Computed example of a mutant assay.
Amino acid sequence: MSERLQPGDTAPDFSLPDADGKQISLAGHKGRKVIVYFYPAAMTPGCTKQACDFTDNLDLLAGAGYDVVGVSPDKPEKLAKFRDKENLRVTLVGDPSKEVMQAYGAFGEKKLYGKTVTGVIRSTVIVDGDGKVEHALYNVKATGHVAKLIKDLDLANEA
């Protein structure tokens, strides 16, 4: 089981391919806050809902200084299909080795339909402009998560 991050921890840097195969790194976002969210698989109902919610709120989040990066174990080709099919505007990156997910505590044992399985733990880590963890949320729900995040970050009034 990978160790979960805590507020104040230094967020592990990463460099992963996006839907177009271009390398995206956390360091490339220095000076901006980054919402890094981990989801199990592109083109599944819950993950689609979550990605669409982030896309629908991207202007609000970007206006408040946040970039959004979604991480799944999918390959760039699948991410490109997902992005194009759902008109997603968030940055999607693939972590087929699951090394970044493990570094962020977003891969390990979880309950799925009452059974304990090993897999991607739906998680969101908010990193400040200096690369420090502000919030680390694990086992989040796909539906309603973005709205709760906006409320918790006190961005609802900026809409």
Results as ranks from 00 to 15, higher is better:
Lys49Tyr: 06
Ala136Leu: 01
Leu149Cys: 00
Ala11Gln: 04
Asp20Lys: 06
Phe54Val: 04
Asn157Asp: 08
Ser97Met: 11
Ala62His: 14
Gly21Trp: 15
Asn57Phe: 01
Phe54Met: 05
Asp95Gly: 06
Ile126Tyr: 07
Pro7Ser: 07
Leu61Ile: 13
Gly21Glu: 10
Ser123Met: 03
Val36Ser: 02
Lys85Pro: 04
Pro96Tyr: 12
Tyr37Asp: 07
Lys49Gln: 03
Asn157Ala: 12
Gln50Asn: 10
Glu3Ser: 14
Ala64Thr: 13
Thr124Gly: 02
Glu134Met: 12
Lys75Gly: 10
Leu79Thr: 10
Ala11Lys: 03
Ser97Lys: 02
Ala147Cys: 05
Gly105Tyr: 08
Val34Gly: 00
Val120Asp: 02
Lys30Trp: 11
Thr55Gln: 03
Ser97Arg: 07
Leu153Ile: 13
Leu153Asn: 10
Val140Cys: 12
Phe54Arg: 06
Asn139Met: 13
Lys22Leu: 10
His145Phe: 12
Pro76Asp: 05
Ser97Asn: 06
Met43Phe: 09
Asn57Asp: 04
Glu158Met: 11
Glu3Thr: 15
Arg89Lys: 12
Met43Cys: 10
Gly65Gln: 06
Val36Arg: 09
Leu26Phe: 02
Asp56Lys: 14
Val117Arg: 11
Lys148Arg: 15
Gly144Pro: 02
Arg83Ile: 14
Phe107Glu: 03
Asp18Arg: 15
Lys98Glu: 11
Val125His: 03
Lys81Ile: 11
Glu86Arg: 03
Phe38Thr: 08
Val69Thr: 01
Gly108His: 15
Lys148Val: 08
Asp59Pro: 12
Thr48Phe: 03
Val117Leu: 02
Ser25Thr: 11
Cys52Asp: 03
Pro17Lys: 09
Leu58Cys: 08
Ala103Asp: 12
Phe14Asn: 01
Glu99His: 08
Tyr113Phe: 02
Arg4Ser: 07
Thr10Ser: 13
Ile126Pro: 11
Lys75Asn: 05
Ile150Ala: 01
Ser72Asp: 00
Lys81Leu: 12
Ala11Tyr: 10
Lys132Ala: 11
Phe107Ala: 09
His135Thr: 11
Ser123Arg: 07
Asp59Phe: 15
Tyr66Val: 10
Thr55Arg: 05
Val34Ala: 09
Asp9Leu: 09
Ala64Phe: 06
Ile35Gly: 02
Ile121Gln: 08
Leu79Arg: 06
Glu3Cys: 11
Gly21Gln: 09
Asp20Pro: 02
Asn139Ala: 02
Leu26Asp: 00
Thr91Asn: 14
Asn87Cys: 07
Val140Gln: 02
Tyr104Asp: 00
Thr55Met: 14
Asp154Met: 14
Ile121Phe: 01
Pro73Glu: 04
Arg122Ser: 00
Val34Cys: 04
Lys30Tyr: 07
Val90Arg: 15
Pro40Ala: 00
Thr48Asn: 05
Gln102Asp: 10
Ala11Trp: 09
Gly94Gln: 07
Tyr104Trp: 07
Lys49Leu: 15
Val127Gly: 01
Lys141His: 12
Leu60Met: 12
Leu155Trp: 14
Gly108Val: 11
Leu155Thr: 01
Lys115Thr: 08
Lys75Val: 09
Pro73Asp: 06
Val69Gln: 01
Glu109Ser: 10
Lys33His: 08
Ala136Asn: 13
